[in-house]
Design a protein around this nucleic acid. Structure first.
Lengths: 344, 344
DNA sequence: TATTAGCACTCACGATAATCGAGTGCTAAC
DNA sequence: GTTAGCACTCGATTATCGTGAGTGCTAATA
């Protein structure tokens, strides 16, 4: 869809204005705001055209116009350009990360907090997905009776522990044995490829040990899967201040979304092509209950391997420029920070 | 404060009615509802008395009355009696717990879910507080470079892991040494009493090792403390349906409370005397922002030692009977379940 | 031909007024 | 001590109306 320069300009001003004020934009106010030297009447004609083309709509006959989702999409694709963040903010963010150097969990929380503060929307961060990485070693620690703890450490130094109940008691000696067997097969293998076929090939195992290993692996698999949807969110109440969420039903929807970790997790991971910043506007979201929201996400990586995702949820009337800039910079910071934290 | 039987009865009916309907109760409706064979006029007189005594108030001159906080307190102390849950519900709850036998975290989530479903309010569960228990053993696992994982296991088989960065690289041999040293001193000691004085008494440590241990202990302490406020909540949106929360400001307050883990944690732990069920009504809550809410909590235990707390947050117009019954039963179930899960 | 001034029209919003009804307090009778 | 009767209160609902920002259309203009 091509628009001539003037239409494009008018559309831009309308979108910018509506993003700021949440009020329908009329031709008079518009003619004052953009100094194109054209009269309200001309603008009205242009606006009527833009409405026919599907970029604008009127909430009711005698009011100003508001942008449609199509308009936001056009704005994002054709008009806006992602600016670099101000130097001061950049250094602020950078310094902030330096205080969270002990643990990945903390880093995620911090990221979510910064994101929500800088954008004034709700921020969501997906914790690292273990299954993308190589197992360095595992360890079985017997807890009590038939309960054991399994610790999985990746090559990159991420750790996860998994509690489980087995069918029989596990003494320290047995847990050592199990540890060794598991290690000999899981070491250096991708966690997502983990299969249980290898067990039957080992000759020197007692049937008891074979049995236990067969019990352990599904637990491991399950825990790795569940861990996929570990989510940190922040600034939920930020959105309550926007007029589009003054109604309790909308808020209920929002809170439910944030609490439905699985939905949220799925939504963050769908990436369109190989862009760095992913923008989903309103009904572009697969999930029905998200059709009133826009979501901007990005991913963070370690050595080129995708670790997790993070992003921002807000109204479709979202400040796409600013959020994109912030995400862009945070992405770099996060990558840098994590590789400092984890890599040799 | 003593009330004669009729006043008490009238107060009871008003409270019950208001809890159900959230509408001020008038003398006419009341005289129909409670078949005491007295006329609205008489009831009006009694209601005027109850208002003078501080049990009732009128939102405006010509409306029915609603109970004051003092009335709820009186109701809870003098009128209501905690009934046993229906057999069917009891078995439902019991069966439900059987599906969550692998991990403490799951159990907590499940408890919160059940609580919120049965009460229709917002449920909060405080995860076990490690510091109340004995350390069985610890283990240091080297992750990568200077990052290590410390695993703490209690006598009862609870486990927790703590990631940290140390000032120097830790190879497997060194981590074994550190593990042994830490174990020899932490084993069988209460986690809350943990001190770092013992280190200087050990002769056979190199200065490097001493230094590392001095680094590790604060991390341990911090992590144990932070873990204290690990919280599972469920059913936040339940409250949105009640008319007292139709206003966005109230909802914002509520959401903030639920997200302020520390406040929530403090609030759950304050126990008044040795009752099993703790009820805080409106401004009886220490925290300012909780003065519009009532909170009913209880605790769960292992071998008589308090592990954690759980409870329900709702409007002061709360169904105190039902919630108390539910909490009472869940408490027993939880204690039973956890001791099955953890103890030898 | 594109632009603009003029004008009648629309419609959400806010203010004001009218009505309704559930509830009250008071008084006097039972 | 209880109750019937009655005047009164006041929030909630509905109706009416003026206001103003906005529109679309037409005809004049550059």
């Amino acid at each position: 869809m091509e628009l001539n320069a003037r239409k494009k300009k008018i559309l831009e001003v309308i979108i910018r204005d509506y993003i700021n004020t949440a009020e329908p934009v009329g031709s008079r106010t518009l003619s004052k705001r953009c100094n194109l030297g054209i009269s309200p009447a001309t603008i009205r004609n242009e606006m009527a055209d833009l409405e026919d083309l599907g970029f604008l709509m009127q909430p009711h006959t005698s009011s100003g116009r508001i942008p449609t989702q199509q308009a936001y999409r056009y704005y994002v694709d054709e008009i806006m350009e992602i600016k670099k963040l101000e130097k001061m903010i950049r250094t602020d963010i950078h310094r902030g990360f330096l205080n969270y150097t002990t643990e990945l969990g903390n880093t995620m929380d911090h990221t979510a907090r910064v994101l929500s503060q800088l954008t004034n929307y709700t921020a969501v961060v997906l914790a690292p997905r273990f299954t993308n990485f190589n197992c360095k070693h595992v360890q079985i620690v017997s807890l009590i009776k038939n309960r054991v703890l399994m610790i999985v450490v990746t090559q990159e130094g991420m750790a996860k522990n998994i509690e489980m109940c087995l069918s029989q008691e596990v003494d320290p000696l047995l847990s050592l044995k199990l540890t060794n067997v598991l290690n000999s097969f899981l070491k250096n293998s991708f966690l997502r490829d983990m299969s249980s076929e290898f067990i039957d090939q080992i000759q020197e195992l007692t049937s008891e040990e074979t049995h236990l290993i067969h019990e352990i692996l599904p637990h491991l698999k399950r825990a790795l899967m569940e861990g996929e949807s570990e989510i940190h969110s922040m600034g939920l109440t930020n959105l309550f201040n926007y007029p589009e969420f003054s109604d309790v039903e909308k808020i209920k929807k929002l809170v439910n979304i944030i609490q439905e970790k699985q939905v949220l997790s799925d939504m963050m991971v769908t990436n369109d092509g190989n862009r760095v910043i992913h923008i989903k506007i309103g009904s572009e979201n697969d999930n029905e209950s998200l059709k009133d929201f826009s979501i901007i996400t990005s991913t963070y990586e370690l050595e080129g391997e995708m670790m997790g995702a993070f992003g921002v949820i807000g109204p479709t009337r979202m400040n796409y420029d600013n959020v994109s800039s912030v995400l862009n910079y945070i992405r770099n910071e996060l990558n840098l920070h994590i590789s400092n934290l984890l890599m040799k």
